[in-house]
Design a binder for these strands. Sequence first.
DNA 1: ACCTTGCTAAACATCC
DNA 2: AGGATGTTTAGCAAGG
Length: 337
Amino acid sequence: MFVDCMAPMRGERGGSPARGARASLPLPRRLIRQIARHVASSGRSLRRLEVSGRIIDNFDDIEDASDESDMETSQPAVACGGNAGNLPPAEHDDDLTSLSWLQDRNLLREPRTPPPICRVPSPPRTPCKAPPPPPVNAHAKPPYSFSCLIFMAIEAAPARALPVKEIYAWIIRHFPYFKHAPQGWKNSVRHNLSLNKCFHKVAAAPGLGKGSLWTVDPQHRSTLLQAFGRQPVPPVEIEAEPTDTSRNAPDPQLFPYLARRLADTRTPPGADEYLAAATVLAMKYGPAVLDQLPPEAHLVISRCARDEHSYSGGEERRTAEALLNLAGVTPAHPQPS
DNA sequence: ACCTTGCTAAACATCC
DNA sequence: AGGATGTTTAGCAAGG
């Protein structure tokens, strides 16, 4: 267990699930509803939506008064695409089905949003009972811990290793707040790199100059993913790289490591890597990303380490293949179904 | 009240 | 020498 070899991250009191077990990636309730309703409204259905081990078959179950605090109080969830759903009909949609709250928060950017297979026109918005969450200003301090920022920066690097200077640059590029922030934040980054066991220093590449390359310890990777999943909002791409708009699909370079790992037929990726891809895509592109998955695909997001659900490898593999296609990565040797 | 986590500041050493 | 990098310590705030 990770607690034996590293300091737990914020909010973590126990160990992490072993490789292959369900990883812990909570989603805000509002996003859970978004996912479930969007799947339902697009003609698909959920086989199950599970929150904290409780099967949700009625969305009133999660329509509670604490709604406005959704983004701060993430709830564990398991959402599975399937064919035997019993969700409320789409005409019950209100602001929860619309992705406008994400747009309002500048979290879904049109060029990055994958084309839906079956787009259902969003109904006109009705006034929300609860006050909307405060808008996220891209120039405000990001709601991510430094460990998550560093993790994202390293994860986005093609080599999954970055010198400190590049980590600074990535953070500034994606979170302009730091462009004019007091210089102390760089100290915090270095402090985090040194102190956090999730990050490892590797030998400097020739010609790199001073400093070392920093990587994410593979053993602690899922822990960082969990921490990432606990963050209240997905990251905002401020300076998006030019994408192939004709395809209008996610940039396969965005998460090169995950794409490469999922495409690797010689060394099968672990369940946490499938899960990481699903989570990263879902968090980045919003619930609409689920439209891209085949009906039998599973997206499993759960905090419960004791979650003993059994899923066949085929389901995970099909999900991974769907995500691969979504990411624009075609396996050289498609795995047999 | 206590503990954990994260942030910030600062001092210091090392390297280029 | 000066700046960048890396390590360590300390204090504080927030939340459980």
